[in-house]
Computed example of a mutant assay.
Amino acid sequence: MKIEKIIENKKQFLDLLLLADEQEDMIDKYLPSGDLFALYDDDLKSVCVVVPINSGTCELKNIATYEKYQGQGYGRALINFISDFYKKDYQTMLVGTGETPAILSFYESCGFEKSHRVKNFFTDNYDHPMFEGDIQLVDMIYLKKELWE
Rank of each mutant, 00 (worst) to 15 (best):
M1G: 10
M1R: 06
M1W: 04
K2Y: 12
E4N: 13
K5Q: 15
I6L: 05
I7V: 15
E8K: 14
N9C: 08
K10A: 04
K10Q: 07
K10T: 01
K11M: 11
K11I: 12
Q12F: 08
F13Y: 15
L14V: 03
L16P: 01
L16K: 02
L17G: 03
L17M: 13
L19E: 13
L19P: 01
D21G: 09
D21M: 10
E22Q: 15
E22A: 09
Q23F: 12
D25L: 11
D28T: 06
D28C: 12
K29Y: 09
K29E: 14
Y30G: 05
Y30P: 03
Y30K: 04
L31H: 02
P32V: 01
S33Y: 10
S33C: 09
S33R: 13
S33M: 14
G34L: 02
G34N: 02
D35Q: 13
D35E: 15
D35H: 15
Y40K: 12
D41N: 14
D41A: 11
D41M: 07
L44E: 02
S46Q: 01
V49E: 00
V49P: 00
V50F: 00
V50K: 00
V51T: 15
P52M: 12
N54H: 13
N54D: 15
N54F: 13
G56A: 10
G56S: 10
C58L: 09
C58A: 13
E59L: 09
E59D: 14
E59K: 12
K61V: 10
K61R: 14
N62P: 08
I63E: 00
A64C: 11
A64Y: 00
Y66T: 08
Y66F: 15
Q70P: 03
Q70R: 15
G73C: 07
Y74P: 02
G75C: 05
L78P: 03
I79A: 03
N80R: 09
N80S: 11
F81Y: 13
F81R: 01
S83V: 05
D84H: 13
D84F: 09
D89M: 13
Y90Q: 05
T92M: 12
L94T: 04
V95F: 02
V95L: 06
G96W: 06
G96T: 10
G96L: 10
E99Q: 14
T100G: 02
I103Y: 03
L104P: 05
S105Y: 10
S105C: 07
F106A: 03
F106M: 06
Y107R: 02
Y107P: 11
E108S: 07
S109L: 05
S109H: 11
S109I: 04
C110V: 06
C110M: 06
G111Q: 05
F112Q: 02
F112D: 01
E113W: 08
K114G: 08
H116A: 08
R117E: 15
N120P: 04
F121N: 07
F121L: 10
T123R: 07
D124C: 09
N125F: 08
N125W: 07
N125H: 15
Y126M: 08
Y126A: 08
D127F: 11
H128K: 11
P129C: 06
P129N: 11
F131Y: 15
G133N: 08
D134L: 07
I135A: 03
I135K: 10
Q136A: 05
Q136C: 06
V138M: 07
D139H: 11
M140S: 12
M140H: 06
I141N: 04
I141P: 02
I141L: 11
Y142V: 08
Y142E: 06
Y142D: 07
Y142P: 05
K144H: 14
L147T: 04
W148R: 14
W148M: 09
